[in-house]
């Protein structure tokens, strides 16, 4: 229940994040658990620094130190960001750098109504809920029944089920449902063929207009989505990529090589040809390997009907070789 309100102390049923020498673990705070044979046993969480009796966390303050047999760690109340880093993966997920941009690009604020498909592992959903609550709502869809169900249970356990409706549905085939017609401020799609969903987005977005965003790993998906958006009267269509790099900070001692003494004849001979002293820097090192691509974010505004541009000519420009086709191609103007 620890995703809903700020808390000072850990209670039974919370998810607590254990921070242990640069690693994060999500712990389900239950004093007991079922073992493989189905027997109720003491819940003991194994860490690289020794075992942790989960029972001992209950009543502890968030932010406080936890003693382990071979060291210690700290417990932190989960946030959607910490959850994205520790959640059980049922699908590929979206991480904080993209999530942050998605929230801002969709113009989401408390009170917004947002539609998401697919739910996947719920990484983005947690962040959407946090942004739109208490007056807003997230409608999230997945055509994978089990994923949809597990996500719903997770929202329940995390105490945020009031702000989200998770449904099992193929949104490309069946849209978002009539009850959502004209209800959404924003729609987000993370599924393989977002362009097929664009006509449904048109139905779901409020009459006063709204925002759209899709996340696609491949540029071909982006091209098709952009064409569909243009054909349906969206404006401010734009595609971007966001990457975050973590810089490693270290103090480095480096040798200093003095060459200036060579200008004068030295009294001391022979002179040793090696670095004469050391100096210190705090340096930031860019990682050898860092995320190079996650996905393209394509965003657009659906203006209200009165401001939508009526399609004039099809946007297709084909790169044809034969000049004989030019005549046809140019005749598409109405």
């Amino acid at each position: 229940m620890s995703f809903r309100n700020y808390k000072d102390k850990i209670e039974e049923g919370d998810t607590a994040i254990l921070y242990l020498s640069n690693n994060l673990y999500a712990i389900d705070v239950r004093p007991e658990m079922k073992n493989k044979k189905g027997e109720i046993v003491e819940n003991v969480y194994q860490t690289p620094f020794g075992a942790l009796k989960v029972r001992t966390l209950i009543g502890a303050n968030y932010g406080s130190r936890v003693e382990l047999s071979k060291g210690w760690g700290h417990v932190i109340q989960p946030t959607p960001e910490l959850w994205s880093l520790t959640l059980p993966h049922r699908t590929q997920i979206i991480y904080t750098p993209d999530i942050s941009m998605i929230l801002l690009q969709l113009d989401l604020v408390p009170g917004s109504i947002v539609i998401e498909a697919g739910t996947g592992s719920g990484s983005l959903t947690h962040a959407l809920i946090r942004r739109v609550r208490p007056h807003g709502h997230v409608y999230t869809f997945d055509f994978h029944e089990h994923r949809s169900k597990v996500a719903q249970e997770e929202f329940q356990e995390h105490g945020i089920a009031d702000f989200v409706t998770a449904k099992h549905r193929d949104v490309l085939a069946d849209g978002f449902g009539e009850e959502l017609n004209g209800k959404a401020d924003a729609v987000f799609l993370d599924l393989p063929s977002p362009w097929i969903g664009v006509p449904h987005v048109l139905n779901a977005i409020k009459n006063q207009g709204g925002r759209f965003c899709s996340f696609s790993p491949c540029i071909e998906q982006v091209q098709r989505t952009c064409l569909a958006l243009q054909d349906h009267g969206f404006q401010e269509i734009s595609t971007m990529e966001v990457l975050q790099t973590e810089i490693k900070i270290t103090r480095r001692t480096i040798p200093v090589r003095d060459l200036s003494f060579l200008k004068q004849k030295s009294s001391v001979s022979p002179v040793e040809e090696k670095p004469s002293s050391d100096t210190n820097y705090v340096v930031g090192t860019w990682p050898q390997s860092t995320p190079g691509h996650t996905g393209y974010l394509t965003v657009a505004t659906l203006p209200p009907p009165y401001a939508r541009s009526k399609p004039k000519k099809t946007t297709k420009v084909e790169n044809d070789e034969k000049s004989t086709e030019n005549g046809d191609k140019m005749a598409v103007d109405e």
Binding site: Y19, I237, T245, E246
Partner: peptide, 27 residues
């Protein structure tokens, strides 16, 4: 460096972002 020595914070991270926009037109 100072905070690492004091060890009163967790999950300390220095990050930097990169962002690129695309022209998307047929072909």
């Amino acid at each position: 460096m100072q905070l690492k020595m004091q060890s009163n914070v967790a999950a300390l991270k220095l990050t930097c972002n990169w962002m690129r926009n695309y022209q998307v037109l047929p072909d």
